[in-house]
């Protein structure tokens, strides 16, 4: 998994590519937990994400909650159908902002 950050105006776009699994989730968790304290608008770009497992979902949920607490925004975008399916299956579509 690779994490690439870029600024898009107010928003910080985090491009996550590769696999977000048990092995790589802690890396993203560490990255995002720092970013939530600094940024008000985060965008997770999943255009190059192969798949996401429950460990990855936990990271996204905790990021979502942290952003909600500080009234920031978290957007997930460019999900492949397979990723979207996971979000649907787990009910994540209900509280995530997916573009």
């Amino acid at each position: 998994m690779e994490i690439t950050k870029s600024q898009e105006g107010e928003k910080l776009v985090v491009l996550v590519s590769g696999r977000l699994n048990t092995g790589t989730a802690p890396q993203l968790d560490a990255e995002l937990s720092t970013l939530v304290t600094q940024q008000d608008a985060l965008v997770l770009d999943f255009s190059d994400l192969a798949y996401i497992s429950s460990a990855g979902l936990r990271v996204i949920l905790s990021t979502q909650k942290a952003m909600s607490r500080k009234k920031g925004s978290l957007v997930v975008r460019n999900c492949k159908p397979e990723i979207l399916e996971v979000f649907e299956m787990t009910g994540f579509v209900d509280f995530l902002t997916i573009e």
Partner: peptide, 16 residues
């Protein structure tokens, strides 16, 4: 209706 996540799957999930 689209169901939410199962209970006890993950903490902090909102239900509709």
């Amino acid at each position: 209706v689209r169901p939410n996540l199962v209970l006890a799957g993950m903490e902090g999930i909102p239900y509709k």
